[in-house]
Write a protein that binds this DNA or RNA. Structure first.
Lengths: 345, 345
DNA sequence: TTTAGCACTCTAAGCGATAGAGTGCTAAAA
DNA sequence: TTTTAGCACTCTATCGCTTAGAGTGCTAAA
């Protein structure tokens, strides 16, 4: 199915209808449109264009003699072809930047802040996952005796990523011994990724061997959703009139609450895209029924081949795409910078 | 205002009305009631009792000639005086226990599981905060050079509680030097709480002194809400018919989403209560307007003077209190055991 | 190619009328 | 004295009906 070619006037009409519908939530009529935007043509002309646009599948009528509402296809065309690349006002940009630099170096704070900013700027629900190291390299290992056979393993990777893991040994081992094992492995594995480490000759000592295995598997964890998922602005979604009926609201929020669903969504969309590329999912795209009234703007941030996280916004299909996309892009860029900074050595 | 004394029959009528109203969401009429529960009296008798109960403030009528609905006072009387101490069926108990022991030793998993179980059992929204150590004692300190002047401080406390903090030094310090400082402080502070540590003679070395200060302030963090708040079942709240109107749903969910509000709520209620005591807040209790349609069941878990966390459920005022309270009690007890286990040495 | 005019369509809103669930009161029954 | 049957009354929710009005598609003129 090739995309039909629209005349300039059709583009204008489509863009204005979408704009006005996003503003008013209502179906848009021809007369209403020319009055609102002072168009230099008659309502009959607009009606003709509307008829064409409906035939192409970009508009539809809720019922026979009502105004027009954009279809999912209509939104897609708008986002892909009509919408200019808006940028956040510089005042907003600097406010946001400022907030991030005030938050210090705490990654938890960054995530929370990012979620909060995305939510308030886009007036929709936001989600942010912490940057997951890709091919992280070994930096330091520490083994700490908690009590008896319980050991805490603290693994420090490049980029300030720290992984903790508890383990229980078969028999008690003294702290000195643990420290020496940790020191040995640290010296051996310095600066290596997990494949390298797996490649080195396995130590003879049983304890050392076990720990090394654990280190490797801990470094291997590249799952997108291992860590916490930061959410914000769920209430914003409820504010939207299309979600006044709690059934539809529930459907939309389930997406954000249920981890398996989220994993599915992320893995099928954003996982294969480049850092910086922004994906806009409009109305579930035929795959996710739960999202049929929603749109999702997603992107990945971080440093390619180093540490990658995901962030995005979920709102009504009727969302302000320009504003939302530019916010997502800006916040992602900012986080990428911050992540990059903490990875340069 | 002293509580009026109810006759046995009045108690029965009140309990049944509440029971039936929770089941049906509807105002309950006299005839309906005797039919549903096969009462051995006439509707007129029930009507008389209803009139008395209304006068006492335990029931009200949505409008002049409608059935009765419990008031907040009515629910309070029910929860305080009428409701027996129900216990979770043993099958459910063992299923839950099993799930916890399968989750291993990961505290993050425990929290997530607890939230999930609370939500699904009570069919309402749940929240769980991680156990915050109270007067934690020092166990081990590690200082790890990340790059140049950036240092990662890993502080291990009793009970397996680990705190990380990044810090930037004025000038670069070698890893050997850091390890020696960490070792020195570890030896010095072994088994002490932060007050003890603050009491020891300050070291002469500037670096050592600074680090010690950081250790103390890190140990001091006893804030209730420093960590992550685990939530689940927000959608359950939307399922309830009283929250079909999105305005009321929004109000209720805001409570769970906005951290400051949550902090306020927790600090004003549960903070001063003992571990194991269960608080039931019915309809905001005149203090929290946002909760006027909701009830909250809260408790603290953990080991007194060691590590305390909070957990609870938020649902409609029309919630199944017996079921919810016993679930909250059981899960809290289970978590307390788990926390206690990881604190014994 | 555009536009004015017009008949036509369909919803949302307003308006009774009605059914029915529930009450409170009174007077008889227990 | 307490309970209950009987009855008039109240109030809502619901249904059907009408109507206003926004919007359309089509035709024919500009």
């Amino acid at each position: 199915m090739s995309t039909p070619i629209l005349s300039e006037r059709q583009k204008i009409v489509l863009a204005l209808i979408i704009h006005e519908h996003i503003r008013s939530t209502q179906p848009i009529g021809s007369k209403n449109l020319i009055e609102q935007y002072g168009l230099e043509m008659s309502s009959a002309t607009v009606r003709n264009e509307m008829a064409s646009l409906s035939e192409m599948g970009y508009l539809r009528q809720p019922y026979t003699s009502a105004g027009r509402v954009p279809t999912e296809e209509g939104y897609r065309y708008f986002v892909g072809q009509l919408m200019g690349n808006t940028e956040l006002p510089s005042a907003t940009r600097s406010t946001i930047t400022h907030q991030f630099y005030q938050a210090g170096q705490d990654i938890d704070q960054w995530m929370r802040l990012a979620a909060s900013i995305l939510a308030s700027q886009s007036k929709a629900a936001s989600l942010v996952t912490a940057p997951q190291p890709v091919k992280a390299r070994f930096k330091h290992l520490e083994l700490i005796e908690l009590r008896g056979r319980q050991i805490l393993m603290v693994l420090v990777l490049t980029g300030g990523d720290v992984r903790q893991q508890m383990l229980t040994l078969v028999e008690p081992v003294s702290q000195e011994q643990l420290s020496s094992v940790a020191g040995g492995i640290s010296a051996l594995s310095q600066g290596m990724d997990y494949e390298n480490i797996a490649g080195i000759a396995p130590p003879v000592d049983a304890l050392e061997k076990d720990i090394l295995q654990l280190v490797i598997s801990a470094m291997r964890q590249e799952n997108l959703l291992t860590g916490e998922v930061y959410r914000d602005g769920l209430i914003n979604v409820l504010e939207e009139p299309e979600f006044a009926e709690s059934t539809s609201a529930r459907r939309a929020l389930r997406v954000l609450e249920e981890r398996p669903f989220l994993e599915d969504l992320l893995s099928q969309t954003i996982m294969n895209s480049d850092v910086g590329a922004i994906q806009v999912l409009i109305g579930g795209e035929g795959t996710w029924e739960e999202l049929s009234d929603c749109s999702v703007v997603l992107t990945r941030y971080g440093v390619q081949d180093m540490a990658i996280g995901t962030l995005g916004v979920l709102g009504p299909i009727r969302m302000r795409y320009g504003q939302t996309i530019s916010t997502v892009r800006f916040v992602a860029g900012l986080l990428s910078e911050l992540v990059a900074e903490s990875h340069t050595e």
